[in-house]
Design a protein around this nucleic acid. Structure first.
Length: 560
RNA sequence: UCGGGGAUAGUUUAAUGGUAAAACAUCUGACUCUGGAUCAGAAGUUUGGGGUUCGAAUCCCUGUCCCCGAGCCA
């Protein structure tokens, strides 16, 4: 469990402490994280999981993983496996407490019969459209279903025949008999069971009636001995029903506690929409590095530590919140800055020939792996007559304040020597294809005996030793306008640009990276943090950019 | 329109009748073998109006605005 960092206490802690004072649950704290296996977990799920598992951790309690799999047409085993894997990646653990709502189908069925016998549930023959009509609206009360007063015997018989599969989908439902005039729609005789002749990912064709969320969730919590059933404020109106069912059944009733929903700037988390992106091939899959899914963020290079840090730094309240995505970027920079080795990589190579360096001479210079952490040690990298530097690091028109290379200018090659540029070789179209330079033999290690100062330091790789790599630059899927501000009722898919991936081929990285393993993360100096893609082929190193560093030069330039 | 919930810097949260604060974001400056990182500094906040009180973000009254709810989804 991620125990190193703990979230500050929030209002839920106060509720629990109050329960502990009054002894309501005998000092127990037992929560559950209840995803529906109908998609992959995304960044907001990480926050919710952190609330559920975190509360149990903070009070020395337990948290179950329970899949809310009551709708067979949306759910798949692939998602169950994906969710479990992601949760483990985040560091959460539930011992042997992995449950499924579908574990309780038989019990739920028997409880439904109990409610029928108590005269609190009935089989209704209204069609979906009729049910809607009878339900009334915001200001007018609903009307009783004509089937509301069937006898217990008839209800029992009909319900059993529903279960046996005698009726087609949608022809009948089992409903709770509560109050069709109740101001809360959830209490207007809510549907408990619907007929669905569909194969369930776990129970196969054993059932053709499936419980609704309301008829399954509270009882599942009750069976598992959950004390605090945490959910978002969208379920506030469901709490009276949650409690009504437990009370009518005469079973233990947990306390439902609601917290505000979470959204992120420039991020769309809607399952339907993400699914659509995957299906329509706008992204390569659920784990596309641009996706807000946790498998996507992982592939892009985000660490579980950074994501947990984000969860701890953002609060929990009853207000719906929009978390700035910049905070996530801060968290990953914080984490990677400490752990990612600095390596040299040239994304857009420009050849440099050092004319006064012997053609076949190679010098292996020493380089520190992380200037802020000596324990990460040093490595040796080859320096030779032909090198590559970044195209962006040479400017013919070098403006004021430009510390990098230009005609006649001297810079330091990091860990190497000072070089001075004498000539830019151009092709027929006037593009610079090569720089002719000389080096100062006195400047080994980056300093000269005369102590002269060069302000610019560049990263570079030896042309003879460099390893070819492909670099993919990713940004958040959505660009401005912020999709959270989508005009009402419009299909934002038509309105919003999404970032395509930028693939840079012909990148050159220092030779030591040939030994890097998929998932390894690095800081390429000045260009950002990169993660070696897990799907990379052995022949070619593919790096995904996690997050860019702040480009201070362009800021300097903008000011002028 | 009916029911439920919410409102403190740009954002997310503290302050539980006693000096309104932190982090991120923003801006300024310093430093550096990258201009990154780091360090220092600045600006900015109680939804409006009334009331109680020596004293109100907090208690009372009253407005305003925002979110959720009419699935046989969860």
């Amino acid at each position: 469990m991620p125990t190193e960092t703990t979230a500050p206490p929030n209002f839920i802690h106060e509720i629990v402490e109050e329960h502990n004072r009054t002894g309501r649950f005998g000092g127990r704290v037992h929560t559950r994280f209840p995803p529906e296996p109908s998609g992959y977990l995304h960044i907001a799920h990480a926050k919710v999981a952190s609330i559920d598992f975190g509360l149990a951790r903070d009070f020395g309690g337990k948290c179950n993983l329970r899949f809310d799999d009551t709708n067979p047409i949306r759910e798949e085993t692939e998602y169950v496996d994906g969710i479990i894997e992601t949760l483990h990646w985040l560091g959460w653990d539930w011992d042997d407490r992995l449950f499924f709502a579908s574990d309780y189908f038989q019990q739920l069925y028997e409880w439904a019969q109990l409610l029928i016998r108590k005269g609190k549930a009935y089989v209704c023959d209204l069609s979906p459209d009729e049910v809607r009509e009878y339900r009334g609206d915001l200001t007018t009360p609903g009307r009783n279903s004509p089937w509301r007063d069937r006898s217990v015997e008839e209800n029992l018989d009909l319900f059993e025949r529903m279960k046996r599969g005698e009726f087609p989908d949608g022809s009948r439902t089992l409903r709770a008999k509560i109050d069709m005039a109740h101001p809360n729609f959830n209490m207007r005789d809510p549907v408990m069971y619907r007929i669905l002749h569909a194969e369930h990912h776990r129970t196969g064709n054993e059932w053709c009636i499936y419980p609704m969320y309301d008829w399954a969730h509270g009882q599942s919590d009750s069976i598992e001995g959950v004390t605090h059933s945490l959910c978002d404020v969208g379920y506030e109106d469901h709490r009276p029903l949650y409690e009504w069912f437990c009370n009518e059944l005469g079973i233990y009733c947990p306390q439902q506690v609601e917290f505000g929903r979470f959204a992120f700037t420039y991020t769309v988390l809607g399952k339907r929409i993400l699914k659509r992106f995957v299906k329509e091939g706008l992204v390569h899959g659920w784990d596309d590095p641009r996706m807000p899914t946790l498998v996507g963020l992982r592939r892009r290079g985000y660490t579980p530590e950074a994501i947990n840090d984000l969860c701890n730094r953002t609060g929990v309240s009853k207000t719906n919140t929009v978390i700035e995505i910049q905070l996530l970027e801060y968290c990953i920079r914080e984490d990677l800055n400490k752990r990612a080795p600095r390596v040299m990589a040239v994304l857009a190579p420009l050849k440099v020939v050092i004319e006064n360096w012997p053609a076949d001479k190679v010098e292996w210079v020493e380089a520190v792996n992380n200037p802020e952490d000596e324990s990460m040690g040093t490595r040796r990298i080859p320096f030779g007559r032909e090198l590559y530097i970044e195209q962006d690091d040479y400017r013919e028109d070098a403006p004021k304040g430009w510390f990098r290379l230009g005609p006649g200018r001297e810079v330091r090659l990091k860990h190497g020597y000072f070089i001075t540029c004498h000539e830019a070789v151009k092709d027929a179209d006037g593009n610079i294809v090569e720089l002719r330079c000389t080096y100062d033999p006195e400047s080994a290690g980056g300093q000269t005996p005369d102590g002269r100062v060069v302000k610019g330091t560049l990263h570079w790789v030896s042309a003879a030793h460099a390893v070819d790599a492909e670099v993919r630059l990713y940004d958040y899927l959505f660009t401005k306008p912020d999709p959270n501000d989508a005009p009402e009722g419009q299909d934002f898919m038509a309105n919003f640009n999404y970032n395509s991936e930028t693939i840079l081929t012909g990148c050159k990285v220092e030779p030591g990276l040939a030994a890097a393993r998929p998932g390894d993360r690095f800081q390429f100096l000045r260009t950002g943090y990169f993660c070696l893609d897990p799907d990379t082929t052995p022949e070619l190193l593919v790096f995904n950019r996690t997050v860019g560093l702040k480009d201070t030069w362009s800021k300097v330039e903008k000011k002028k």
